[in-house]
């Protein structure tokens, strides 16, 4: 019967997004209703009467749940945040060759290369973090249009991050090629960087395709 109380609350909160506020309200309501139900049992009611007594005094829960459905404000905030993250990531990509050149001028050894890769790693991490926190479109009902919107949202989000990554990647490859070639003067062999870069891009692409298939 306790499960019926929980179910009753679940149904009332069916179309409320699971935010911290709504989950806490659910827990609060459930625990108070269960206590009330147990008190009715102690007074000698049978389970059925106790349950209907509890439910009778619940009232119209929609006045509680209605304000929780309004999540627009949260969305605007997260959009701003996401734009900032993307901008910082792209900035890091662009600055990474600068780090390479600057650090190599100042220090000897692999510090220049290391600092460039740290920049790249940070930027990539930001992009991945960003795509994981931005809420994906969840369909509101089972119509074809809603399914299409959800699919479109998912595809565009992955391809957008990937396009950003790819353009930055080629930019860095060219910078690396020129830099190494000019410092070592081994032009006969440095072109191999482009082959390696292409291979890396294809591997990343392959991983993305595999992941997408998994999601399906």
């Amino acid at each position: 019967m306790i499960n019926r109380i929980k179910q009753y609350i679940e149904v009332a909160f069916m179309d409320v997004p699971p935010t911290k506020a709504s989950l806490e309200l659910k827990e609060e309501l459930t625990s108070n209703m269960i206590e009330k139900y147990n008190d009715y049992l102690l007074k000698g009611d049978n389970e059925e009467t106790a349950f209907s007594n509890v439910v009778e005094h619940v009232g119209d829960l929609s006045e509680l749940t209605a304000p929780l459905k309004d999540t627009n404000q949260v969305e605007i905030l997260s959009k701003k945040q996401s734009a900032t993250l993307k901008a910082v990531a792209v900035g890091l990509y662009i600055l990474s060759p600068v780090a390479l050149i600057l650090m190599s001028e100042l220090f000897t050894g692999p510090i220049g290369l290391t600092s460039m890769f740290i920049f790249i790693a940070l930027a990539t991490a930001l992009l991945i973090y960003n795509s994981s926190i931005t809420k994906s479109y969840t369909r509101q009902d089972e119509t074809m249009t809603e399914q299409f919107k959800e699919w479109q949202d998912k595809t565009s989000k992955t391809s957008e991050s990937f396009a950003l990554f790819k353009s930055a990647f080629w930019f860095i490859t060219i910078a690396l090629y020129l830099y190494i070639s000019f410092t070592t003067f081994r032009w006969h062999i440095t072109w191999i960087i482009f082959l390696i870069a292409t291979a890396i891009i294809k591997i990343v692409e392959g991983i993305l395709v595999l992941r997408k298939n998994d999601e399906k």
């Binding site: 309501l29 108070n32 209703m33 206590e35 005094h57 619940v58 009232g59 119209d60 829960l61």
Partner: peptide
């Protein structure tokens, strides 16, 4: 205090004549 306890107290003080609906109480 917590929700149910408050509502129970209201019921006792009014000699079972009045109690709040849960929706009213929690809002």
């Amino acid at each position: 205090s917590y929700g149910y306890e408050i509502n129970k107290a209201i019921q006792e003080k009014t000699d079972n004549q009045y109690q709040l609906k849960d929706a009213t109480l929690y809002s």
